[in-house]
């Protein structure tokens, strides 16, 4: 088995949004739809202040609540590598998955609007054909790239190597070693979804600054 996932080193993230732009470019996502986002927080008291950046995306959980919530099996887990996928041809747009997902990873594609006025640009015209209005979309780790042996576009674009992608079921993989040799955490592990994205130093940063 393969368990694709990420280790995100928060100490390295500079909030440049290169991952967001790469994702939008790779997947031609419409306005207001972010398969990946970088959240931020200002921490500390002057002069000891810093900004914490938190890249988020679909966590490709081992127990994905979205898959359980979906009434039509439009959301499913790809058995060979545990990637949570969307089949737009089955999605009815009930948004139960949006409610069930604790990680703000799912977006409804509501209308065919482009970034530049009423008309779509030729790039948007071609790119948006892969999206169906009235259905849900989300990060799929750029499954086409993975199947070709490439990293997801966001990982390739990250200039500080904040995003590390690999197979957690392979003990020799880069991500397994990173996870093993560092203190890592999942987002809200008590919710029981068992995400495949691990964060390094998510809490220590806050503690250091506050201290």
């Amino acid at each position: 088995m393969t368990r694709w996932g990420m280790v995100i080193d928060l100490k390295r993230c500079i909030g440049c949004w290169a991952c967001i732009v790469a994702c939008k470019s790779e997947n031609s996502t419409p306005p207001n739809i972010f398969w990946t986002k970088v959240l931020e927080r200002e921490e500390g008291t002057y002069p000891d202040v810093r900004r914490l950046f938190l890249p988020i995306r679909c966590n490709h959980c081992l127990n994905p609540p979205c898959v359980e919530a979906c009434p039509t099996n439009a959301t499913y887990v790809r058995k060979e590598d545990n990637i949570v996928m969307m089949n737009s041809n089955k999605c009815i747009g009930c948004q139960a998955c949006v409610i069930a997902c604790p990680y703000d990873a799912r977006y409804m594609y509501k209308d065919k609007k482009g970034y530049f006025g009423k008309e779509l640009t030729p790039f948007e015209e071609v790119g948006y054909k892969q999206h169906e209005i009235g259905t849900i979309q989300k990060c799929n780790f750029n499954v086409d790239r993975i199947d070709k042996g490439l990293n997801p576009a966001c990982v390739e674009a990250c200039p500080t190597k904040t995003l590390n992608f690999g197979d957690f079921d392979d003990p020799e993989s880069h991500v397994s070693k990173l996870k093993k040799t560092n203190e890592s955490t999942q987002l809200r592990p008590e919710l029981g979804a068992d995400p495949s994205i691990f964060y390094l130093d998510a809490y220590r940063e806050t503690a250091e600054v506050d201290g």
Binding site: E68, C70, P71, T72, N73, A74, N89, K90, C91, I92, G93, C94, M108, K110, D111, E132, I133, G134, T135, I136
Partner: peptide, 18 residues
């Protein structure tokens, strides 16, 4: 009426699948 616009809502009969 709340389901997704376009063709999506007309697939409502799949709703018994899970």
């Amino acid at each position: 009426t709340h389901l997704g616009a376009g063709r999506a809502r007309w697939r409502a009969f799949y709703v018994f699948l899970n």
